[in-house]
Amino acid sequence: METIVFALLNGVIYGLLLFMLSSGLTLIFSMMGVLNFAHASFYMLGAYFAFTISGSSSFWIALFIAPVLVGLVGAVVERYGLRKVHANGHVAELLFTFGLAYLIEEVVKIVYGKTSVDYRIPDLLDFPAFTIYGASFPAYRIFMLFVAIGMLVGLWVLLKKTRAGLIIQAALTHPHMVGHLGHNVPLIFMTVFGIGCALAGLAGVIGGNIFVTDPAMAVQMGPIVFVVVVVGGIGSLEGAFLASLLIGLLQNFAVGISASFGEIFGFLGLSTTSELGSITISSLAPMLPFLLLVLMLIFRPRGLMGEQEL
């Protein structure tokens, strides 16, 4: 019972963090067709900016300022980098972001040092919210939950209820038509890229202090974000949301299962002492998202909720 409760709680919270990280990428990917390899780097920038700002003022100011700064950096990258590369096709765009991720990491090392920085949870939230089965549940995680839900609602309102959102949605699928209607499509692209990066930055602000803020944090988060976007499906924020929760829950439930292959497939004659048989489900947990990615692409290439195939 307690395993299930823990897995649910952690799975939902981890899934929501993943969603914050990947919602921006879904927007960017669906509109521009670019798989932004540097997306996790913007997540890292968010954490570092928040570290600097909260050092000189407070965490609450950083919570608002840092994502805006990251968004501005993203907009500059789109305007002076990506737009120029756009003419050379998608592979060039993708490789540009690939190189950018390298550059951001090295520059962060020079500016902030090569080791992790001491980015802490604000004192106001540094207490256990409640205790179940002997383990206390930090209040900060509840706070994460609210930020993520707030962001989800905000994004939904922006896209579905405002005029700007309608234009963005139209530009996602029919950029040329939107252009013919007199809208400035490059500006829309730049805005969306900026917003996407700002969302990643926000994830960095609230994720950086619960995990570790160091120059390797982008590399560690990088591939899993793609999994969410692809599994969720192109152009579908709902899909990304479902995929994030699915992956969060999948990983957390798998950790709770200590059974090994040998025990499960024992009826096939697999021994628990053999190399294959001794592998436990819980040790495979972090690999499950990639397995899901491969299977999804093979059997359902448009993802959970995608409108078109990749």
Partner: peptide
């Protein structure tokens, strides 16, 4: 079966899986 991004993403997933298997077996 597919070119483009589908192929790229499958190759990424497969690479992660095989690399993880490298440490398990």
């Amino acid at each position: 079966r597919k070119a483009g991004t589908t192929f790229a993403m499958i190759s990424l997933g497969v690479a992660e899986l095989i690399a993880a298997a490298g440490f398990m077996f």
